[in-house]
Design a protein around this nucleic acid. Structure first.
Lengths: 153, 153
DNA sequence: TCTAAAGGTTCCCTTTTAGAACTGAGTGGA
DNA sequence: TCCACTCAGTTCTAAAAGGGAACCTTTAGA
Protein backbone atom coordinates (compact mmCIF):
# COMPACT_ATOMS: atom_id res chain seq x y z
CA UNK A 1 0.00 0.00 0.00
CA UNK A 2 1.24 3.45 -0.87
CA UNK A 3 1.05 6.64 1.20
CA UNK A 4 -1.72 8.14 -0.86
CA UNK A 5 -4.01 5.19 -0.40
CA UNK A 6 -3.73 5.47 3.36
CA UNK A 7 -5.76 8.63 3.72
CA UNK A 8 -8.72 6.97 2.03
CA UNK A 9 -8.88 4.08 4.48
CA UNK A 10 -12.01 4.07 6.67
CA UNK A 11 -9.89 4.30 9.81
CA UNK A 12 -8.88 7.33 11.81
CA UNK A 13 -5.54 5.81 12.70
CA UNK A 14 -4.69 5.24 9.05
CA UNK A 15 -5.81 8.72 8.10
CA UNK A 16 -3.82 10.33 10.88
CA UNK A 17 -0.80 8.21 10.00
CA UNK A 18 -1.07 9.51 6.44
CA UNK A 19 -0.31 12.94 7.90
CA UNK A 20 2.05 12.34 10.82
CA UNK A 21 3.18 8.72 10.46
CA UNK A 22 6.72 9.47 9.54
CA UNK A 23 9.90 9.63 11.50
CA UNK A 24 10.62 13.27 10.76
CA UNK A 25 7.14 14.69 10.83
CA UNK A 26 6.60 14.03 14.52
CA UNK A 27 9.96 15.59 15.35
CA UNK A 28 9.10 18.65 13.27
CA UNK A 29 5.84 18.94 15.16
CA UNK A 30 7.62 18.59 18.49
CA UNK A 31 9.74 21.57 17.50
CA UNK A 32 6.68 23.50 16.37
CA UNK A 33 5.26 23.12 19.86
CA UNK A 34 8.62 24.39 21.16
CA UNK A 35 8.04 27.50 19.04
CA UNK A 36 10.51 26.71 16.33
CA UNK A 37 9.26 28.33 13.15
CA UNK A 38 11.97 28.79 10.53
CA UNK A 39 13.50 26.48 7.99
CA UNK A 40 17.08 26.99 9.11
CA UNK A 41 16.19 26.46 12.73
CA UNK A 42 14.36 23.21 12.06
CA UNK A 43 17.25 22.05 9.97
CA UNK A 44 19.89 22.88 12.56
CA UNK A 45 17.96 21.33 15.45
CA UNK A 46 16.78 18.18 13.73
CA UNK A 47 19.72 17.27 11.55
CA UNK A 48 17.27 16.25 8.85
CA UNK A 49 18.38 16.80 5.27
CA UNK A 50 17.13 20.03 3.73
CA UNK A 51 15.47 18.08 0.96
CA UNK A 52 13.35 16.01 3.31
CA UNK A 53 12.61 18.97 5.54
CA UNK A 54 11.30 21.00 2.61
CA UNK A 55 9.16 18.05 1.56
CA UNK A 56 7.69 17.46 5.03
CA UNK A 57 6.93 21.13 5.62
CA UNK A 58 5.19 21.28 2.26
CA UNK A 59 3.10 18.23 3.15
CA UNK A 60 2.18 19.58 6.55
CA UNK A 61 1.07 22.83 4.97
CA UNK A 62 -0.99 20.96 2.39
CA UNK A 63 -2.53 18.90 5.20
CA UNK A 64 -3.53 22.10 6.99
CA UNK A 65 -1.41 21.37 10.06
CA UNK A 66 1.00 24.25 9.49
CA UNK A 67 0.57 27.49 7.62
CA UNK A 68 3.17 29.79 6.12
CA UNK A 69 3.32 33.32 7.43
CA UNK A 70 5.39 36.04 5.78
CA UNK A 71 7.70 37.49 8.41
CA UNK A 72 9.78 39.56 6.01
CA UNK A 73 9.39 40.97 2.52
CA UNK A 74 12.53 41.77 0.47
CA UNK A 75 13.50 39.05 0.35
CA UNK A 76 10.14 37.47 0.95
CA UNK A 77 10.47 34.90 3.71
CA UNK A 78 8.07 32.69 5.55
CA UNK A 79 7.82 30.98 8.85
CA UNK A 80 5.78 27.91 9.66
CA UNK A 81 3.17 28.03 12.38
CA UNK A 82 0.73 25.52 13.75
CA UNK A 83 -2.86 26.01 12.65
CA UNK A 84 -5.73 25.13 14.98
CA UNK A 85 -5.72 21.71 13.37
CA UNK A 86 -2.04 21.48 14.21
CA UNK A 87 -2.53 22.66 17.77
CA UNK A 88 -5.07 19.87 18.17
CA UNK A 89 -2.18 17.43 17.84
CA UNK A 90 -1.00 18.48 21.30
CA UNK A 91 -2.59 15.50 23.07
CA UNK A 92 -0.83 13.18 20.63
CA UNK A 93 2.51 14.74 21.46
CA UNK A 94 1.76 14.67 25.18
CA UNK A 95 0.91 10.98 24.99
CA UNK A 96 4.05 10.27 22.99
CA UNK A 97 6.27 12.21 25.37
CA UNK A 98 4.73 10.52 28.38
CA UNK A 99 5.29 7.05 27.00
CA UNK A 100 8.89 7.95 26.24
CA UNK A 101 9.31 9.39 29.74
CA UNK A 102 8.03 6.22 31.35
CA UNK A 103 9.58 3.58 29.11
CA UNK A 104 12.62 5.08 27.41
CA UNK A 105 14.18 7.45 29.93
CA UNK A 106 17.09 5.39 31.21
CA UNK A 107 18.48 6.01 34.64
CA UNK A 108 19.07 9.72 34.20
CA UNK A 109 15.35 10.34 34.22
CA UNK A 110 13.14 12.27 31.86
CA UNK A 111 14.66 15.01 29.73
CA UNK A 112 11.79 17.41 30.30
CA UNK A 113 9.14 18.28 32.84
CA UNK A 114 5.77 19.79 32.08
CA UNK A 115 4.27 22.47 34.28
CA UNK A 116 0.54 23.06 34.18
CA UNK A 117 0.18 26.82 34.47
CA UNK A 118 -3.48 26.49 35.42
CA UNK A 119 -2.61 24.76 38.69
CA UNK A 120 1.10 25.45 39.00
CA UNK A 121 2.19 21.84 39.33
CA UNK A 122 4.43 19.58 37.32
CA UNK A 123 2.21 16.99 35.74
CA UNK A 124 1.83 13.91 33.63
CA UNK A 125 -0.93 13.72 31.03
CA UNK A 126 -3.81 11.40 31.91
CA UNK A 127 -6.33 10.21 29.34
CA UNK A 128 -9.84 10.53 30.67
CA UNK A 129 -13.36 9.87 29.48
CA UNK A 130 -15.29 12.87 28.17
CA UNK A 131 -18.49 11.39 29.66
CA UNK A 132 -17.47 10.52 33.22
CA UNK A 133 -14.07 12.24 33.55
CA UNK A 134 -12.44 9.10 34.93
CA UNK A 135 -9.12 7.82 33.58
CA UNK A 136 -9.60 5.42 30.69
CA UNK A 137 -8.22 1.93 31.13
CA UNK A 138 -7.51 -0.13 27.99
CA UNK A 139 -9.68 -2.97 29.16
CA UNK A 140 -12.64 -0.69 29.77
CA UNK A 141 -13.08 0.33 26.15
CA UNK A 142 -15.39 -1.36 23.67
CA UNK A 143 -15.45 -0.41 20.02
CA UNK A 144 -18.53 0.03 17.84
CA UNK A 145 -18.86 0.86 14.17
CA UNK A 146 -19.57 4.56 13.68
CA UNK A 147 -21.44 6.34 10.90
CA UNK A 148 -18.31 6.39 8.72
CA UNK A 149 -17.76 2.63 9.00
CA UNK A 150 -17.90 0.34 6.01
CA UNK A 151 -18.55 -3.39 5.99
CA UNK A 152 -15.87 -5.23 4.02
CA UNK A 153 -14.87 -8.48 2.33
CA UNK B 1 20.39 11.08 11.16
CA UNK B 2 19.72 7.37 11.11
CA UNK B 3 17.09 5.40 12.99
CA UNK B 4 19.52 3.99 15.47
CA UNK B 5 20.82 7.38 16.52
CA UNK B 6 17.31 8.52 17.35
CA UNK B 7 16.88 6.41 20.43
CA UNK B 8 19.93 8.05 22.02
CA UNK B 9 18.59 11.57 21.68
CA UNK B 10 17.81 13.23 25.00
CA UNK B 11 14.17 13.66 24.02
CA UNK B 12 11.21 11.45 24.78
CA UNK B 13 9.59 12.23 21.46
CA UNK B 14 12.68 11.14 19.55
CA UNK B 15 13.01 7.99 21.62
CA UNK B 16 9.36 7.10 21.16
CA UNK B 17 9.59 7.82 17.46
CA UNK B 18 12.51 5.40 17.27
CA UNK B 19 10.00 2.71 18.26
CA UNK B 20 6.70 3.73 16.70
CA UNK B 21 7.56 6.50 14.22
CA UNK B 22 6.87 4.54 11.12
CA UNK B 23 3.93 4.26 8.82
CA UNK B 24 3.32 0.58 9.41
CA UNK B 25 4.17 0.28 13.06
CA UNK B 26 1.28 2.41 14.23
CA UNK B 27 -1.12 0.43 12.05
CA UNK B 28 0.23 -2.82 13.44
CA UNK B 29 -0.31 -1.51 16.94
CA UNK B 30 -3.83 -0.42 16.07
CA UNK B 31 -4.54 -4.00 15.05
CA UNK B 32 -2.92 -5.31 18.22
CA UNK B 33 -5.40 -3.29 20.25
CA UNK B 34 -8.13 -4.81 18.07
CA UNK B 35 -6.87 -8.22 19.22
CA UNK B 36 -5.16 -9.21 16.02
CA UNK B 37 -2.30 -11.50 16.94
CA UNK B 38 -1.08 -13.61 14.04
CA UNK B 39 1.24 -12.93 11.15
CA UNK B 40 -1.20 -13.94 8.45
CA UNK B 41 -3.97 -11.87 9.95
CA UNK B 42 -1.84 -8.74 10.18
CA UNK B 43 -0.73 -9.30 6.63
CA UNK B 44 -4.23 -9.75 5.26
CA UNK B 45 -5.69 -6.78 7.12
CA UNK B 46 -2.89 -4.31 6.53
CA UNK B 47 -1.78 -5.10 3.01
CA UNK B 48 1.81 -4.59 4.11
CA UNK B 49 4.41 -6.74 2.41
CA UNK B 50 5.40 -9.83 4.37
CA UNK B 51 8.99 -8.71 4.37
CA UNK B 52 8.23 -5.40 6.06
CA UNK B 53 5.72 -6.98 8.43
CA UNK B 54 8.27 -9.51 9.64
CA UNK B 55 10.78 -6.72 10.14
CA UNK B 56 8.39 -4.52 12.11
CA UNK B 57 7.17 -7.33 14.34
CA UNK B 58 10.77 -8.26 15.07
CA UNK B 59 11.57 -4.66 16.00
CA UNK B 60 8.51 -4.33 18.21
CA UNK B 61 9.47 -7.52 20.02
CA UNK B 62 13.02 -6.28 20.48
CA UNK B 63 11.65 -2.99 21.78
CA UNK B 64 9.58 -4.88 24.35
CA UNK B 65 6.26 -3.64 22.98
CA UNK B 66 5.11 -7.06 21.78
CA UNK B 67 6.07 -10.52 22.88
CA UNK B 68 5.84 -13.81 21.05
CA UNK B 69 3.69 -16.50 22.60
CA UNK B 70 3.67 -20.08 21.36
CA UNK B 71 0.09 -21.03 20.55
CA UNK B 72 0.92 -24.33 18.89
CA UNK B 73 3.84 -26.75 18.87
CA UNK B 74 4.27 -29.09 15.88
CA UNK B 75 4.71 -27.00 13.95
CA UNK B 76 5.82 -24.42 16.44
CA UNK B 77 3.89 -21.21 15.89
CA UNK B 78 3.73 -17.89 17.64
CA UNK B 79 1.36 -15.08 18.10
CA UNK B 80 2.20 -11.51 18.95
CA UNK B 81 0.73 -9.90 22.03
CA UNK B 82 1.07 -6.51 23.61
CA UNK B 83 3.26 -6.40 26.69
CA UNK B 84 2.48 -3.98 29.51
CA UNK B 85 4.82 -1.54 27.81
CA UNK B 86 2.78 -2.01 24.65
CA UNK B 87 -0.53 -1.59 26.46
CA UNK B 88 0.80 1.72 27.77
CA UNK B 89 0.67 2.98 24.19
CA UNK B 90 -3.13 3.02 24.43
CA UNK B 91 -3.31 6.77 25.17
CA UNK B 92 -1.17 7.45 22.11
CA UNK B 93 -3.57 5.48 19.94
CA UNK B 94 -6.58 7.14 21.55
CA UNK B 95 -5.11 10.57 20.85
CA UNK B 96 -4.30 9.61 17.28
CA UNK B 97 -7.78 8.20 16.66
CA UNK B 98 -9.42 11.24 18.16
CA UNK B 99 -7.46 13.65 15.99
CA UNK B 100 -8.38 11.61 12.94
CA UNK B 101 -12.03 11.54 14.01
CA UNK B 102 -12.13 15.30 14.37
CA UNK B 103 -10.01 16.37 11.41
CA UNK B 104 -10.04 13.60 8.85
CA UNK B 105 -13.49 12.04 8.99
CA UNK B 106 -15.14 13.59 5.98
CA UNK B 107 -18.88 13.99 5.84
CA UNK B 108 -19.70 10.39 6.62
CA UNK B 109 -18.49 10.82 10.17
CA UNK B 110 -16.11 8.79 12.25
CA UNK B 111 -15.50 5.14 11.36
CA UNK B 112 -15.60 4.00 14.98
CA UNK B 113 -17.10 4.89 18.31
CA UNK B 114 -15.56 4.16 21.70
CA UNK B 115 -17.69 3.02 24.59
CA UNK B 116 -16.36 3.46 28.12
CA UNK B 117 -17.50 0.33 29.94
CA UNK B 118 -16.90 1.94 33.31
CA UNK B 119 -19.65 4.48 32.73
CA UNK B 120 -21.50 3.01 29.78
CA UNK B 121 -21.24 6.04 27.53
CA UNK B 122 -19.67 6.69 24.17
CA UNK B 123 -16.74 8.97 24.77
CA UNK B 124 -13.90 11.01 23.39
CA UNK B 125 -10.52 10.93 25.09
CA UNK B 126 -9.61 14.07 27.01
CA UNK B 127 -6.06 14.84 28.13
CA UNK B 128 -6.05 15.99 31.73
CA UNK B 129 -3.49 17.07 34.30
CA UNK B 130 -2.40 14.44 36.82
CA UNK B 131 -2.13 17.15 39.48
CA UNK B 132 -5.44 19.00 39.16
CA UNK B 133 -7.48 16.69 36.89
CA UNK B 134 -8.47 19.55 34.61
CA UNK B 135 -8.18 19.31 30.81
CA UNK B 136 -4.79 20.47 29.58
CA UNK B 137 -4.76 23.36 27.15
CA UNK B 138 -1.69 23.81 24.92
CA UNK B 139 -1.16 27.34 26.08
CA UNK B 140 -1.22 26.35 29.74
CA UNK B 141 1.89 24.19 29.57
CA UNK B 142 5.42 25.38 30.33
CA UNK B 143 8.43 23.18 29.80
CA UNK B 144 11.39 22.80 32.14
CA UNK B 145 14.57 20.78 31.81
CA UNK B 146 14.29 17.52 33.71
CA UNK B 147 16.98 15.37 35.32
CA UNK B 148 17.73 13.66 31.99
CA UNK B 149 18.27 16.96 30.17
CA UNK B 150 21.61 17.89 28.65
CA UNK B 151 22.86 21.37 27.82
CA UNK B 152 24.11 21.53 24.25
CA UNK B 153 26.14 23.47 21.67
C1' DT C 1 2.09 -39.03 -2.31
C1' DC C 2 -0.20 -34.65 -2.75
C1' DT C 3 -2.25 -30.48 -0.90
C1' DA C 4 -2.82 -26.98 2.36
C1' DA C 5 -1.77 -23.69 6.27
C1' DA C 6 1.25 -20.60 8.89
C1' DG C 7 5.12 -17.92 9.25
C1' DG C 8 8.60 -16.50 7.32
C1' DT C 9 12.79 -15.52 3.63
C1' DT C 10 14.66 -14.38 -0.93
C1' DC C 11 14.78 -11.94 -5.14
C1' DC C 12 14.45 -8.01 -8.22
C1' DC C 13 13.17 -3.55 -9.14
C1' DT C 14 11.36 1.15 -7.76
C1' DT C 15 11.05 4.82 -4.45
C1' DT C 16 12.89 7.36 -0.71
C1' DT C 17 16.56 9.20 1.95
C1' DA C 18 21.33 10.93 3.26
C1' DG C 19 24.77 14.00 2.35
C1' DA C 20 26.72 17.51 0.09
C1' DA C 21 26.87 21.12 -3.26
C1' DC C 22 24.52 24.71 -5.61
C1' DT C 23 20.95 28.59 -6.56
C1' DG C 24 18.81 32.98 -6.01
C1' DA C 25 16.97 37.14 -3.80
C1' DG C 26 18.44 40.55 -1.06
C1' DT C 27 21.31 42.99 2.78
C1' DG C 28 25.20 45.35 4.62
C1' DG C 29 29.98 46.62 4.50
C1' DA C 30 34.63 47.90 2.22
C1' DT D 1 31.17 48.46 -7.49
C1' DC D 2 32.47 44.12 -5.42
C1' DC D 3 32.30 40.82 -1.76
C1' DA D 4 30.60 38.15 1.92
C1' DC D 5 26.69 36.64 4.23
C1' DT D 6 21.72 35.04 5.33
C1' DC D 7 17.73 32.33 4.50
C1' DA D 8 15.05 29.14 2.05
C1' DG D 9 15.11 26.25 -0.75
C1' DT D 10 16.63 22.88 -5.21
C1' DT D 11 19.67 19.56 -7.51
C1' DC D 12 22.67 15.64 -7.72
C1' DT D 13 24.45 10.85 -6.67
C1' DA D 14 24.82 6.82 -3.98
C1' DA D 15 22.86 4.10 -0.43
C1' DA D 16 18.96 2.31 2.05
C1' DA D 17 14.23 1.02 2.43
C1' DG D 18 9.99 -0.62 0.44
C1' DG D 19 6.70 -3.08 -2.95
C1' DG D 20 5.40 -7.28 -5.19
C1' DA D 21 5.84 -11.81 -6.10
C1' DA D 22 7.77 -16.34 -5.61
C1' DC D 23 9.86 -19.63 -2.70
C1' DC D 24 10.95 -22.42 1.69
C1' DT D 25 9.97 -25.24 5.93
C1' DT D 26 7.31 -27.84 9.13
C1' DT D 27 3.49 -30.42 9.93
C1' DA D 28 -1.37 -32.24 9.27
C1' DG D 29 -4.72 -34.50 6.72
C1' DA D 30 -6.77 -36.81 2.41
Amino acid sequence: MRWNELKREPCSVARTVSVIGDRWTLLILRDCFLRVRRFEEFQARLGVTRHVLADRLRKLVRAGVLHKVVYQTRPRRFEYRLTDKGLDLHPVLLAVVHWGDVHMSGRRGRPMLHEHLACGHMFDPVMTCSACSQPVDVRAVRLHPGPGAVRRR
